[in-house]
Each structure stands twice: as structure tokens, then as C-alpha cells.
């Protein structure tokens, strides 16, 4: 069989998601943000949610997420996405409202908004990109930075004495009565990408069914901040990040709507 015979419309099994904008992203080569954007674009199309979704974009490398996934968005001030999402979902409860946030946004400057939105059980999905560093501003330590990890502000490695311990914020969120679903996933292999897609789908379904707050943490790489190649970053993540941030469900939903 020739390549020309194989490359026919009826044989297509994978293509660029329709809701992903045509423009190129500003992300560094190999950045996990792009993979998660792709998953979200696929799901919103497959679930028929194109015209009833409001995304809330963060401050951080994903600040331009609204340019890349072709649904309605609001851009929140740094860390305030869960507060903005609260308003968006309460005012138009028929819509799917989700936040997309990095670890600096969700677990540092926005800790209060994150915890209180989750504790109120807002009917939103929070997509949490944990790359253990502040990517956008040049690789400073984040609350999630591992002990011993070198960053621009911990040039000799993070120490508990000076910097405190890595913050497993998803574990904290799982203890709150307002959350219905908290899971930790990754996107470093095709199988992991499929699992993350299933998790985000569940989070979107929970938000629509008013089951409370869902959190999908995606343990991610920031190869520029980590100063490794994209492939080496994935290896480093598996070896180091997964020990502190093991993959799997931290809390799963009951089928009944909460309110």
C-alpha cells in the first residue's frame, strides 16, 4: 500500500482539534500546556459544549489560553480565577465554567481563592498545571517546587529550613466537603494523555451536574525553567515529581447532585 493510498479522508484517525485556534502558541517547544489545551479543545467539541463554556484564564504562561481554545473566556487577575469562575457559574448556571491555572497562580498568590471556592463547592472544574516552578517569570521557586530542586530563587536547591516544604495542595482540596472529585494526572505518554482526558471529562460532567468542585491536577514539565530538553524533562518528572505528587484519584464523586 502506498502512502498516497493510506492518506485518504476516510482513513483519518487523528487530526488537529477543531476548537484549537489556527494560530501558533507562544509556549516553548515541548511544553505540557499545549498538550492540555489540546485535550480541552477535543473534549469541548466532543461534548458539544462549544457554545456553553466559559473558561477562566490565569496569569502565568497560560495567560493567553483564551487565544488558543475557541470558546468564551474571561482573563482573571493573578490567582483570582476561582473567584471569577464563581461569579460566571452562579450568574449562568447552565454554562460549563472551568479555570485553567498554574501552580504559582493556584497554589501561591491564589491560595485563598482556590481553597474558598473549593470549600464553597462551586460547580466549576479547576484544571491545575503543576510544573513545580514559575515558568512565565523565568523559573522562580513555586510552593510546589521539590526539595533540592534548583530554581532562579533557590540556586542551591530548595531547603525545608529556608523555603518550607512542597505544597501538595490537591491533597488539601480533597479533604474539603465542597470538592467532589480530585485527581492527579500527567501528559507525558499517550496512555497518560488518555487518562487525563477521561479525568477532565469527568470534571466537566461534575460541573454540569452541579456535584461541586472538581480539581484535575496535571503534573507537568516546564523544560525551559527546569533547563532540560522536553524528553529529559519527562524523565525527570517521572523520577522526581511523581514521588511527591503520585498520580491517581484523591477523591471520586458520588453520583447524586449536591444541591
Amino acid at each position: 500500500m502506498t502512502t498516497e493510498e493510506i492518506i485518504q479522508p476516510q482513513n483519518k484517525v487523528y487530526s488537529r482539534p477543531r476548537l484549537l485556534d489556527e494560530r501558533d502558541t507562544h509556549y516553548c517547544p515541548g511544553c505540557s500546556h499545549g498538550v492540555v489545551h489540546k485535550i480541552i479543545a477535543e473534549l469541548l467539541d466532543e461534548m458539544g459544549l462549544e457554545n456553553k463554556t466559559v473558561g477562566v484564564a490565569p496569569v502565568g504562561c497560560a495567560v493567553f489560553a483564551y487565544n488558543y481554545i475557541d470558546v468564551d473566556w474571561v482573563e482573571a487577575a493573578h490567582g483570582r480565577a476561582p473567584a471569577v469562575a464563581t461569579a460566571a457559574s452562579r450568574l449562568n448556571p447552565q454554562n460549563l465554567v472551568f479555570t485553567y491555572q498554574g501552580d504559582g497562580d493556584l497554589a501561591a498568590i491564589g491560595t485563598a481563592e482556590t481553597i474558598h471556592a473549593a470549600n464553597r463547592g462551586e460547580n466549576i472544574a479547576m484544571i491545575f498545571i503543576n510544573n513545580g516552578i514559575y515558568g512565565m517569570t523565568g523559573g522562580q521557586m513555586a510552593p510546589t517546587t521539590l526539595l533540592g530542586m534548583k530554581t532562579a530563587t533557590t540556586p542551591y536547591g530548595r531547603t525545608a529550613e529556608l523555603n518550607g516544604y512542597p505544597l501538595p495542595i490537591s491533597n488539601i482540596l480533597a479533604t474539603l466537603d465542597g470538592t467532589c472529585y480530585v485527581t492527579r494526572q500527567a501528559v507525558h505518554t499517550p496512555a497518560a494523555v488518555r487518562k487525563t482526558k477521561a479525568a477532565i471529562k469527568k470534571a466537566f460532567e461534575n460541573a454540569l451536574a452541579k456535584r461541586g468542585t472538581s480539581v484535575v491536577e496535571v503534573v507537568s514539565t516546564c523544560n525551559s525553567g527546569w533547563k532540560l530538553s522536553p524528553a529529559k524533562s519527562n524523565e525527570w518528572m517521572v523520577e522526581h515529581m511523581f514521588e511527591k505528587y503520585p498520580l491517581g484519584d484523591l477523591k471520586t464523586p458520588s453520583e447524586e447532585p449536591k444541591n
Binding site: 482513513n11 483519518k12 484517525v13 488537529r16 502558541t25 509556549y27 498538550v35 501528559v187 499517550p190
Partner: peptide, 26 residues
């Protein structure tokens, strides 16, 4: 190209959605 089995592993992990995959089962 002759080794391709159309599994879409490449396309699934591509952060920039650059890859289209075709597959025929004979």
C-alpha cells in the same frame, strides 16, 4: 514511513497539534 502503524502515539503527545494520522487495516 513504511514502519508507521497509525497508532497516533506521536500525535497524542504533540503539544502543538502538528500531526495528522491515517490508518488502514487490510
Amino acid at each position: 514511513p513504511d514502519k508507521c502503524i497509525g497508532c497516533a502515539a506521536c500525535a497524542t503527545v504533540c503539544p502543538d497539534a502538528c500531526i495528522e494520522v491515517y490508518r488502514v487495516v487490510e
